[in-house]
Design a protein around this nucleic acid. Structure first.
Lengths: 147, 147
DNA sequence: TATATTTAGTTAGACATCAAACTAGAAGGG
DNA sequence: CCCTTCTAGTTTGATGTCTAACTAAATATA
């Protein structure tokens, strides 16, 4: 196998794994919830942030601002986040999580336990520990390549 | 880190890498072409198959039949594949690649060299060779879990 | 054989995603 | 101070993706 098709195969495998896992995670979320929306909620809780501009959220998840606008609009309509103007910058917004958003995040976490346990049961813990640092390194290198 | 958050982190990293690479690959493809469509074309050429039912293509790429219908419809409209009824089964179809589809596949391959070389230049070949078998094993286990 | 179940494919409606074009406000340079 | 450039966010139109409900054909079962 040539080096290039090796790289291609690598990304192909990653794509399929991503598809399999995203699908199985999405399937257990409450009606109307998605991985993208859960990720935003989880971000706010994990980092314990008061508020953040959409731009920073877009950067954090490596999506365009247009994508983040789309997701946040739906989340605001569902009452999961609050979006206010940034008083110090007429162009900017401040996004924050609501109490309903926190509750939804907890509910999602609970429901994700099942698929995570399933994955854990077939994957060897050692294999994961071997894999993770390699993947982190790949991701960091690709990230740097982007700049 | 708990076992479950280890698994979660693993899939998170995979998701981000997938997003970074898909975006950079998609960016160089000819106007109107996508990774999904290229994957179908490449599948036919690599495996040197005459024709295949949509169901098998859906299985090969781990997407639903509905998704494959959507992609194939667009590809047929663009003249990249041909879709005929299966003479032996009134429910089925036969999908095959056209000459235009082959030419498009070659063009895509050529254009993908750049991003692949970039990726290759930052990733160590050894690292990829370590990673690949682990990922293949993970994918196979997740696949079996699905059934 | 007649009915029930399974299978292949489609359609409809939803969400995430992108690129490109746009608006509006901020920052900088003359 | 004005004009240019940059930045934040939105809108539009496209694709890929899913689930759920549907049609039609094949298979299994009673």
């Amino acid at each position: 196998m040539t080096d290039r098709s090796l790289v291609f195969t690598l990304f192909n495998e990653i794509g399929i794994i991503n598809q399999l896992t995203s699908a199985s995670f999405a399937a257990v979320l409450p009606k109307g919830m998605t991985i993208a929306q859960f990720s935003v909620l989880n971000h706010f809780v994990r980092l314990d942030i008061g508020h953040k501009p959409p731009k920073d959220l877009a950067n954090a998840f490596q999506v365009t601002r247009a994508t983040m606008t789309s997701t946040l609009t739906r989340m605001e309509k569902a009452g999961l986040v609050s979006i206010k103007p940034n008083p110090d910058d007429g162009r900017g917004k401040h996004v924050s999580i609501t109490a309903l958003g926190r509750a939804m995040r907890d509910e999602c976490i609970a429901r994700l336990q099942g698929p995570l346990e399933d994955a854990q049961s077939v994957l060897d813990k050692r294999a994961i520990e071997d894999l993770l640092p390699l993947l982190v390194s790949v991701r960091e290198k690709l990230d740097r390549l982007r700049d």
